[in-house]
Structure formats: structure tokens, C-alpha cells
Nucleic acid binder design. Structure first.
Lengths: 119, 119
DNA sequence: TTATAATATAGACCATTATCTATGTAAGCG
DNA sequence: CGCTTACATAGATAATGGTCTATATTATAA
């Protein structure tokens, strides 16, 4: 799998303020000024965060009069969950096996364990 | 929900190299030297990344002789998926509603939409 | 004990980024 | 028009973080 898009989503989400914005938008669309009331930082800072979220494909913006309405993208929700499942599943799709690397088949001392147990 | 632990996981995952390490470990445990063969960076850099992953509760380390064996924590997989579901679900658990904030009930112009549609 | 191999730690360096203030733009209203 | 409101952009600053080299630690082997 190509994790490029998934990493970009993770980077955008890996900020407590942006995560809170996503949480707010999970209830429905909001305009910038409404989002801003939930935070202590300045308006340009919010503008910056919304740009990051848009670049990562997490939210879309729709201008209506003076207001910018932000909405969580359904594609983001699908792609992020799918990427997570693909990353954490031991279904043979990991880099290790797809690369047919020697290390994973038989290591230097036979101590490397390839199994289904994750504990 | 308290997203503190979830954010820490996201921060640890939001690096392409660490994401690849998680992908490698999703197939099973590996020692540091085996993980290192998949990357171009130095051994101290890997040591740093593994420490970040441990601090976030993503992997555990078990020393066996000279080797450090790293394993993906089952609790991480569960907690991360649960946190993701809780974040993206419009189930009333979002900050917006749990705070009973005025903005979300009736906004300045009635333009704020609280609904189930995410498009 | 001496040497070697696997890993960790310390500290420096550089890129990224989160934030700010100041200012620009665009839309609505008197 | 002039004023206000909502938002974006520019540029500066300070903190964070990924990487390196050098060195320390720990365990095994000769």
C-alpha cells in the first residue's frame, strides 16, 4: 500500500487543536467564526489550521456570503478507516512480506518470529 | 472523550518511517537490527523512533540477549480503532454537543447545520 | 580479559510548524 | 461612499522534531 495520503492525514490530525476541530465538524458543518469560539488562539491561526485540514483532504470549504462553511469529507472518513485497517491488519499486505525480504523469512539467528500473535 | 492518549498515538504515527515500522511489526515481532535493514537512517535514529513508539504505547520491548525485540501492542490496535470510531462518528459524543455549547444549538444566523449528512 | 556486536544516550544541527501581529481582501450595510 | 464583519495572507519568532556524529552501555565470544 502507498501510505503517502494516509501519512498526510495523520500529520494533520496529530495536533490537539485540529483534532478538536475534526471532532466539532463530526457533528455537522460549521463556519470559521463558530469554530473559533471554542479556542483561545487567534483567527489567523485558525485559518492556518483549516488550510492544513483542507490540504490533507479532511475538510472542504464552501463560501456563503461572508462565511466560510467547513465540512468533514466523507471520503476522508472512509479512506482513513481503510488505511488504518490495512496498516494494522496482519493480512500479508505489510511491507515486510510484500517485499519478500530475507530478514523476515529467516533472520540472522532464527529469533525473528512471524506469527499471528500480537501480544 | 479524552483525546490525550489518542493524540499521542497520532503524533507517533505521523512520520513515514515510524508508520513503516508499525507496518513491519504488524506481521510480527522484530528486533532492532532487522528493522534497521529496511531503512537508510542511522541506528541512533531508529533507537529514537522506537522510543517514541514505546512512549505512545504503540510497541513494547523485550530484551533477549543482545537483541531488543519489538512487538505491536494489541491494546494500541484496539484503542486506536476505538478512538478513531469515536472521533468520526456523529453519535453525539463530540465536544460540541457534550459541551452544550450555544453555537451548536442556534448560531448567529441559523446557518449552522447539525445533521447526519457529512457530504 | 579483550574484542566485537547490538543498542542506548548526549548533544548539535537543521527543517518544520504553531503561533503571533500587522495588513489585505471581500462582502454586506448605513 | 465609508464602515464593519469574516476571513486570508505575509512575515517574524519560538518551539518541536528528525537526523546526525560521538560515545557509553550491555551482552556474547574468543
Amino acid at each position: 500500500m502507498d501510505y503517502q495520503n494516509y501519512v498526510q492525514m495523520l500529520k494533520a490530525m496529530a495536533d490537539p487543536n485540529r483534532l478538536k476541530i475534526i471532532d466539532l465538524l463530526s457533528c455537522g458543518s460549521l463556519c470559521a467564526c463558530d469554530i473559533l469560539t471554542h479556542f483561545d488562539f487567534s483567527q489567523p491561526t485558525l485559518s492556518h489550521h483549516m488550510k492544513v485540514l483542507q490540504s490533507a483532504g479532511i475538510v472542504t470549504a464552501r463560501k456563503e456570503g461572508k462565511w466560510q462553511h467547513y465540512t468533514l469529507r466523507a471520503e476522508f472518513i472512509d479512506q482513513f478507516k481503510q488505511g488504518t485497517d490495512q496498516l494494522l491488519a496482519d493480512d500479508g499486505s505489510c511491507i515486510c512480506r510484500s517485499d519478500n525480504c530475507a530478514d523476515c523469512q529467516a533472520s540472522h539467528s532464527g529469533k525473528v518470529v512471524i506469527s499471528n500473535e500480537k501480544s
